[in-house]
Amino acid sequence: MSVLTVLTAAIAPGVALLAYFYLKDRYDTEPISLVIKLFLFGVLIVFPIMVLQRALVHGLGEDPFVFSFLISSLPEEFFKWFLVYFITFKHASFDEPYDGIVYAVAVSLGFATLENVFYAFLNGSSFSSLMIRAFLPVSGHAMFGVMMGYHLGKAKFTPEHTRKHLLLSLALPVFWHGVFDYTLLLSKAYWIWFMVPLMSFLWLRSLRKVNRANAKSPLRVATREDQVKI
């Protein structure tokens, strides 16, 4: 494949998934400039995370469990969570629970997209292998972003449970990301039998959270009231 074809195939899944979750916002879409900014920040954090992970590998070794949960999952999800929390949690545009999902997915897919580009060029990937990565790591990062953003939205709009949901907004993505990586590492020859059910579960779980977040939007009530007045 040509360089342009590889680059397009590596970038397209992340952009398509971001567009999908952006358009799932039923009541008040977020400023596209802010979403793009978060996506680009997600791209940029790939570099410090790579350096940190290399240091952790030297210090902790490459045991599959340690690698999956402490070297891969924890740094990646923490950096993403840090960005989403400090850039958007008190932002005026974060005015409904679903917004947290949009912002967390944007950062997650920025990270996943550059990671996918590196993989494509460093491993000489075929188009079919890039499509497999679209189904696995790229969409996996999107699912982890949905979990993170859902609980950030709950943390902001249920003040009595803020601490609980802030903890869940980091702990759940770290846990499921670790499970994802650990499953891949332990089932290299038979990964499809484990990953298809896991990804199906994560997608169904994420879509339920998308619907719940939209259902809790204060703008939903306002829209209904406006329709009644008309």
Rank of each mutant, 00 (worst) to 15 (best):
M1S: 12
T5D: 02
V6Q: 06
V6N: 12
A12V: 09
A16P: 04
F21G: 01
Y22W: 10
Y27W: 03
T29I: 13
T29K: 13
F39E: 05
L44P: 00
L44R: 07
V51T: 10
L52D: 02
R54S: 14
H58P: 07
G59R: 05
L60D: 13
G61Q: 03
F65R: 11
F67K: 13
F69P: 11
L70A: 13
P75K: 02
E76C: 05
F78H: 15
F78W: 10
W81F: 13
V84M: 01
I87C: 11
K90Y: 14
K90M: 10
F94A: 05
E96F: 13
P97S: 01
Y98K: 04
A104E: 10
L109A: 06
A112Y: 11
A112C: 00
L114H: 11
N116H: 06
Y119S: 14
F121Y: 09
F121L: 14
L122T: 14
L136I: 06
H141A: 02
H141C: 07
A142S: 05
A142W: 00
G145S: 04
M148L: 03
E160I: 07
H161S: 14
T162Q: 02
K164H: 05
L168P: 02
S169C: 15
P173T: 06
V174W: 13
F175S: 08
W176C: 08
D181Q: 15
T183S: 11
A189C: 05
I192M: 09
W193P: 08
M199H: 02
W203R: 10
L207Y: 15
R208W: 14
R208A: 15
R212N: 14
K216Q: 14
S217M: 10
R220F: 12
R224V: 14
K229Y: 15
I230Q: 13
I230G: 10
